[in-house]
């Protein structure tokens, strides 16, 4: 709770938080069907209308309302971004924790595998997975999760290695505490701060990666809208209907900005040096 309060007090936390909240509200409305118009059904008479009072962000080639499609698209993009980052966080934390805890040779095996994964571009990995299971949001989630797992593994392993040699871990051993107790209460609990920061920042990147994958037609499939897909569809109409590109593009940019600002704010707030002052 006090983290939330500190976030509101932090200038960039306030802006970032407001952006994310706004996008979340839009996404929830989109998912609940509370859109101004039907985002999927074509309505040819009103094709390629510029932004107006009826169609706030104009309409596309099939006469669908851009604003409504955007609201639905934000939701789909967010689901992919969140799901993939949550998977990456869990996988990365487990791998990083065990690499640090077990030490050699597992440390080397795990972390070198992570290095190899880190060398893969997300798009290339997605292509590989798509060639096996076909395109779709699930494919994007899996691909993005795999690409971001090494980052979390590294974020966890470093601090875990230094925590492992702290005296309170030795103390826990002298009580005869079980390994699972030490790993969760002593290691993981102290890793929450770096993980939270990394989680927020990774959301920004994965939002961008999802847009990229959809843009190439590897992620969300039409007629479902997603930010990247909408950008991709607007490509050929750039000169006739610039609003089709402008609004999804702006949304991606603002979304990434929001997560980055929040991540920066969280890093400041959770930094023990600034925390001391508040204590």
């Amino acid at each position: 709770m006090h983290i939330l309060r500190a976030l509101i007090r932090h200038p960039s936390g306030r802006i970032g938080g407001a952006i994310i909240l706004l996008l979340l509200i839009a996404a929830i409305c989109g998912a609940l069907g509370l859109t101004p118009h039907d985002p999927i059904k074509a309505f040819p008479p009103d094709r390629l209308k510029p932004p107006s009072a009826t169609y706030w962000m104009g309409t596309d080639l099939l006469g669908r309302d851009t604003a409504s499609r955007l609201m639905l698209g934000i939701g789909l993009s967010f689901i992919v971004a969140f799901a993939s980052v949550i998977c990456a966080t869990i996988a990365g934390t487990v791998i990083g924790l065990f690499a640090a805890w077990w030490g050699r040779p597992w440390d080397g095996i795990f972390m070198r595998t992570m290095d190899v994964l880190l060398a893969f571009p997300a798009i290339l990995l997605a292509l590989l997975i798509i060639s096996i299971v076909g395109p779709g949001p699930m494919t994007s989630i899996v691909a993005i999760a795999i690409v971001y797992t090494p980052i979390f593994a590294r974020v966890v392993r470093g601090p875990a290695l230094s925590l492992k040699h702290r005296e309170f871990i030795d103390a826990a051993r002298t009580f005869g505490s079980s390994e699972s107790y030490i790993l969760t209460r002593h290691l993981l609990l102290n890793l929450i701060a770096p993980l939270t920061v990394q989680f927020t920042l990774a959301l920004a990147w994965s939002l961008l990666t999802e847009a990229g994958l959809s843009f190439l037609g590897l992620g969300t499939q039409p007629p479902s809208p997603s930010l990247g897909l909408m950008l991709s569809e607007s490509r050929n109409l750039m000169q006739h209907a610039p609003w089709l590109m402008l609004f999804p593009g702006l949304t991606v940019m603002i979304g990434v900005l929001g997560f980055n600002l929040t991540g920066d704010a969280l890093r400041d707030i959770l930094d023990p040096r600034t925390q001391e002052r508040g204590a």
Binding site: E167, S177, Y181, R185, I192
Partner: peptide, 30 residues
């Protein structure tokens, strides 16, 4: 049992746990 008290009182208490959890740990382990 044998128990131990360490040199650095700052490093031998997990900063994220409150005193109740800290004191309970040996008992839970037992």
């Amino acid at each position: 049992p044998i128990q131990m008290v360490f040199q650095d009182p700052y490093a031998s208490l997990n900063p994220r746990l409150n005193v109740e959890s800290l004191l309970a740990e040996p008992a839970i382990a037992a």
